[in-house]
Write a protein that binds this DNA or RNA. Structure first.
Length: 896
RNA sequence: GGGCGAAUAGCUCAGCUGGGAGAGCAUCGGCCUUACAAGCCGAGGGUCACAGGUUCGAUCCCUGUUUCGCCCACCA
């Protein structure tokens, strides 16, 4: 057929501007309709699987989710395109306390509480809430483009997972790794439940350190005083001893003495314990075993009684005597006042210290002694540590290893019971007849020990993290031996935020290794927290929250995804700046416009064939861009294989904008418009081939725009998301083309610089000379003479071995090549000079005016300093501009 | 108290086992050149925190200092 020298009709399929909102909606629907995200389990293929860190069912998508799920989606799409059996399991977490709080608030607004409903009705109510509102985050994840296998969505409370929870609990119990015991735990007086150590947030706060005088009664008759220091004076009502360090000389005479505890009339002993820090406070420590962990442990060592003075709501109980019924903080004030009145308060000093709060509701937690269920984690932790040490699990970035080991070495038993209703109720029953405890997977009807049918199930539920710990295998069907489990366990990588390394990641390792004897995931990638651009944590109260849904609405999902990817450098906190999102939106737009250009040249050419493997274009630019594509493919693959997401993004960006658009497309324009059909065909084929590869390469990061463009490229094609991921083809590496293009690009840039510096009109045609003594380089330059001329707008270009540089010429040297552009005669010097002179006059006038103003003492003294400063700035600016104008004038005059 | 990390252009950051100091944004100058002014072509801008050391050579490795940030921890 005839080659077309005309641009093809403007009636292209791609709209002039990229309407991301419409495109995203359309493709998401299509992907879901076609079940393109569904896992495959074809024999003989490699497997790639990921389980989503299940967001709380109460959650809404925040920027952290957006980051987390973008990174997962990139890997999942990448591996799916590589042809692996790929599964991404989605789901949500029942989030015990958080969800119960939400529903309780709802009830409160109706003037009710959960006890009004009773346990069963309340749980029913939570399920109802979940079916109405619990799916919000799932929709948002879809909108983000998350290519999860949505038909496999799981919920930590659904039947299968609940079954797994029971199975695990029962097995651990019978192995002696779960036990019930009385111990001091963190108690939230608002949520009315125990909290694990890591569910307590310690925050610095300003408090007061009270020094209290306790009178000593000594049998020998030498009465004296001991002064103790405390931040929580109300707990003195529960003191059962005062401790001093055994080697503290100051208190040696008091060993074995007794103290008359003020306000209570109780008498308590002085004990010696080396836990006491002699340097702190007075060196004497009041001991309140029921309400302080260290005191509790000390009390065990000394067989001291535990006296509880607070109830579960943080209200003083009957043991508080006259203070019973007071709230703990009100009581604190009262006690201080009373002690002061009776002369027992020695001093108060301001004191900054860390106070523990409930991680859900931020209520100050109260250490409390109670009956709880625990997991003995030591044996489980040892397996996890061994797996990491032997590299069966790798952690990225590797800075986390040390933290991980350190934490695992100091791990304590895990308190797994929670005194709430929403969650997996502990599968333990007590027989009223024989008092034995039955722990079983299935609800027992009768006591297996005595046959009695009066069994009472444990009231407590399990810590939310208990079920999350099973997530990698419970979601795959365990305890059944499913095909999914066989295909996808262990999962390939876990991507999560570092702040749940211990809550969750470590516990998954323990459970996976214990029950399946295999790691739950081979790699762990811990990403940073997303902060604002000043490095501050985002929080509603600070008002610096960047809402991903806003970003999506404003800039598009792809722009947000690309931004997050570009920021995801390992081991670095992410300071998200909205301007960057806008910047990457422009990148998407650039890609869109390149697509429009490509489409213009490709769409109506029925004979167009994409580049096939055994065809090798001859044109330098084609060879060069194919070589660049190869390099980029390698970079992106290597980056993704090593979780260097930012590098993948930056390679793509560099390739698309600078190699492909700035150089390649500009370079091949003459080819595309050529009269020579072979030249046109080669250009079109290469353009199509390269563009296809580019889209495929970018797809994992920006799925929507790439899929849309892909669908408009000529030829029958399926979904891009299921197309093969590009592979580097060594036969297309072309060092020679890279070198030649490198030289030409430098020469062209050099000539452009001369043009710009000479202040030539960009449209003006120049006559340039190039002198190059190097024969090889000169040959290259001569071969591409017309390319150079096109790209620097030269009407004439001499390429010679050597020559002289005239005085009135722009001159530059790149790669041993002298670039010369004679300036004379290229522009209308007279007209230019007139323009410049006018500008000079204008600037001088203005400058004069400001200088006069600044010379005026009155002005400088009385005007607001900011105004004066601004005037000075302006003067400086004008002066520099004037200087430049004068330079130009000089140059012009030299040309005359 | 223990541990970890960071310090590179005005801003946000790359710089992946030692040899060229880089990107995006912002700034300045010039352009609506037939994909893109959401663009193009150019330009300016850095004692790579500081001080030592190793090396032919240090942003990079070592030591110390300073300043930030984070995590863990029972000093009441």
């Amino acid at each position: 057929m005839e080659s077309s020298a005309q641009p093809l009709a403007n009636n292209t399929g791609l709209s002039k501007t990229y309407e991301f909102s419409e495109v995203e909606k359309r493709w998401l629907a299509r992907w879901l309709d076609e079940k393109a995200f569904a896992a495959t389990m074809e024999p003989g293929k490699a497997s790639f699987s990921v389980v989503i860190p299940p967001p709380n069912v109460t959650g809404v998508l925040h920027i952290g989710h957006a980051l987390n799920n973008t990174l997962q989606d990139i890997l999942v799409r990448y591996h799916r395109m590589r042809g692996d059996n790929t599964l991404w399991v989605p789901g949500t977490d029942h989030a015990g306390i958080a969800t119960q709080n939400v529903v309780e608030r709802q009830l409160a607004s109706e003037g009710k509480n959960r006890h009004d409903l009773g346990r069963d009705a309340f749980i029913e109510r939570v399920w109802q809430w979940r079916s109405e509102k619990g799916g919000a985050i799932v929709k948002q994840l879809k909108r983000l483009g998350a290519s999860c296998d949505w038909d496999r969505e799981r919920f930590t409370m659904d039947d299968g997972l609940s079954r797994a929870v029971r199975e695990v609990f029962v097995r651990l119990y019978h192995e002696g790794l779960i036990y019930k015991g009385s111990y001091i735990i963190n108690w939230c007086p608002r949520c009315h439940t125990a909290l694990a150590d890591d569910e307590v947030d310690h925050e610095e706060s300003d408090g007061t350190l009270y020094h209290l005088r306790y009178p000593v009664t000594n049998d020998a008759g030498e009465a004296g005083d001991v002064v103790v220091a405390t931040t929580r004076p109300e707990t003195m009502l529960g003191d059962t001893a005062v401790a001093v360090h055994p080697e503290d000389e100051r208190y040696r005479h008091l060993h074995g003495a007794m103290i008359e505890l003020p306000l209570t009339g109780r008498t308590i002993p002085i004990i010696c314990d080396s836990y006491v820090e002699r340097e702190f406070g007075t060196g004497a420590l009041k001991v309140t075993p029921a309400h302080d962990r260290n005191d509790y442990e000390m009390a065990l060592r000394h067989q001291l009684p535990q006296l509880k003075i607070l109830d579960d709501s943080g209200v003083m109980n009957e043991n508080a005597g006259a203070y019973a019924g007071q709230d703990r903080f009100a009581c604190r004030k009262q006690i201080v006042a009373d002690l002061k009145a009776q002369g027992f308060l020695v001093k108060e000093e301001a004191y900054r210290h860390a106070v523990g709060g409930c991680y859900r509701c931020h209520t100050v937690i109260e250490p409390n002694v109670s009956e709880q269920w625990f997991v003995s984690v030591r044996p489980l932790a040892d397996k996890a540590v061994a797996a990491v040490q032997s590299s069966r699990i790798n952690i990225y970035p590797d800075t986390w290893y040390k933290t991980f080991y350190n934490w695992m070495d100091n791990i304590r038993d895990w308190c797994i019971s929670r005194q709430i209703w929403w969650g997996h109720r502990i599968p333990a029953w007590t027989c009223a007849a024989c008092s034995k405890v039955i722990v079983a997977v299935d609800d027992p009807d009768v006591c297996p020990f005595c046959g009695s049918s009066s069994l009472t199930q444990e009231e407590d539920v399990l810590d939310t993290w208990f079920s999350s710990a099973l997530w990698p295998f419970s979601t795959l069907g365990w305890p059944q031996q499913t095909k999914e489990l066989a295909t996808f366990y262990p999962t390939s990588v876990l991507i999560t935020s570092f702040d749940i390394l211990f809550f969750w990641v470590a516990r998954m390792m323990m459970m996976g290794l214990h029950f399946l004897d295999e790691v739950p995931f081979k790699d762990v990638y811990l990403h940073a927290l997303v902060r604002d651009k000043f490095g501050k944590k985002m929080s509603k109260s600070t008002g610096n929250v960047i809402d991903p849904l806003d970003m999506i609405a404003q800039y598009g999902t792809d722009a947000l995804r690309f931004t997050l990817t570009a920021f995801a450098a390992q081991g670095r906190e992410i300071r998200l700046d909205e301007e960057r999102v806008d910047g990457y939106r422009r990148f998407i737009n650039k890609l869109w416009n390149a697509a429009r250009f490509a489409e213009m040249h490709l769409s109506q050419d029925a004979s167009i064939r994409p580049l096939v493997d055994d065809v090798h274009p001859k044109g330098l630019a084609h060879r060069w861009i194919l070589s660049r594509v190869n390099a980029t493919i390698r970079e992106v693959r290597a980056a993704l294989d090593h979780y260097n997401f930012n590098e993948a993004a930056s390679s793509c960006y560099q390739f698309v904008w600078h190699y492909f658009c700035d150089w390649y497309l500009e370079w091949i324009k003459p080819d595309l418009f050529s009269k020579d059909a072979a030249v046109v065909a080669e250009a079109r084929a290469t353009l199509l081939g390269v563009f296809e590869q580019t889209l495929a390469l970018l797809h994992p990061i920006i799925p929507f725009v790439t899929e849309e463009i892909w669908s408009h490229l000529p030829g029958e094609r399926g979904l891009l998301m299921l197309a093969p991921f590009p592979e580097a083809r060594p036969e297309r590496d072309d060092a020679q083309a890279e070198e030649e293009m490198g030289l030409l690009m430098e020469v062209i840039s050099g000539l452009r610089t001369i043009r710009t510096e000479a202040e030539l009109h960009p449209g003006a045609q120049i006559k340039a000379s190039i002198f190059c003594a190097n024969t090889d380089k000169r040959t290259i330059l001569q071969r591409h003479r017309s390319d150079i001329m096109a790209l620097v707008r030269a009407s004439e270009l001499d390429i010679a071995e050597a020559g002289g540089v005239p005085n009135d010429a722009g001159h530059a040297l790149v790669q041993d090549v002298e670039l010369v552009v004679p300036l004379k005669g290229l522009i209308d010097v007279a007209a230019e000079l007139e323009k410049l002179n006018k500008e000079q006059a204008r600037l001088e006038l203005e400058l004069n005016r400001i200088n006069t103003k600044l010379a005026n003492e009155q002005f400088v003294a009385k005007a607001p300093p900011a105004v004066v400063a601004k005037e000075r700035e302006k003067a400086l600016e004008l002066a520099t501009r004037l200087e430049k104008i004068l330079e130009s004038i000089n140059r012009m005059q030299a040309l005359r």
